[in-house]
Design a protein around this nucleic acid. Structure first.
Length: 234
DNA sequence: GCGACAG
DNA sequence: ATCTTGTCGC
């Protein structure tokens, strides 16, 4: 690939949106940079990230809230609105939402030690879900916490808080994530390594961030934040 | 060819 | 994600 293409690999912005093939090629390159071991000493701040489309505006709004950890007291919240440049295609979510995340992250003053993204980490067909993609580009530890499965097979975890089962790559048979029951009586969430963290730690952090709701506080609060932002004109 | 398919 | 009212369950 030439220098322009090489540049596009480390950048989520593009003059012309990449084709599906180009996007998948970029994912295969970035996947090689994912680190599946803890790349931090201590986690003192965790950020939750979420997005939502602004109906009728062809734009997306991204909200990021930074919390102290493990206290989970809010330290800061920022947001950014960007034009839609890519459609939603299963497996290529980062090309749609990534630019808004990068833009909003630039405004964060209290840089987090870990970011929690609403979506998959390595539990993805090419091992690079949005949480991993953004983690690698920002070079910051990350974990993916998705509400639905994208890839992998699993057995339903028992209906008790904290129960979890492994999410397995159907071809290789290795574990790519965890199906975690964060709240009894509700559907489980899909936790996977984003970047610079191992699975057991990712599951532990997700659980420590859970406060009585199915969704961990960082992404849950970020979701409420963007739902509000959508209704405000700017 | 037939399903599956994050947000 | 979004379109959408009432409704089942704690």
């Amino acid at each position: 690939m030439d220098s322009t293409e090489k540049e596009s690999v480390t950048n989520l912005y593009y003059e012309t949106p990449p084709s599906r093939e180009e996007a998948e090629a970029i994912q295969k390159e970035l996947q090689k940079r994912v680190i599946t071991q803890n790349g931090f000493k201590e986690i003192k701040r965790v950020a939750g990230i979420d997005l939502a489309p602004i109906q009728g505006e062809e734009r997306l709004v991204c909200g990021i809230i930074v919390f102290s950890f493990p206290e989970l007291e809010e330290l800061e919240r920022v947001s950014a609105r960007v034009d839609e440049q890519f459609p939603y295609i299963p497996g290529l979510l980062a090309f749609r939402e990534g630019p808004a995340i990068i833009e909003a992250f630039k405004k964060v003053k209290y840089k987090p030690d870990l970011i929690m993204v609403d979506g998959q980490g390595i539990a993805h067909p090419r091992g690079l879900g949005i949480a991993s993609h953004v983690g690698v580009i920002l070079d910051i530890p990350s974990i993916g916490v998705a509400k639905e499965r994208l890839y992998g097979k699993y057995n339903e975890p028992l209906d008790s808080e904290g129960s979890w089962t492994p999410l397995i790559n159907p071809y290789k048979g290795n574990t790519i994530g965890a199906v975690v029951r964060t709240k009894k009586g509700t559907k489980p969430v899909f936790v996977s390594i984003g970047h610079k963290i191992d699975l057991r730690t990712a599951v532990r952090i997700a659980r420590e961030c859970t406060k009585g709701y199915r969704i961990p506080e960082p992404t849950r609060k970020a979701d409420i934040f963007v739902a509000h932002l959508k209704t405000v004109k700017y």
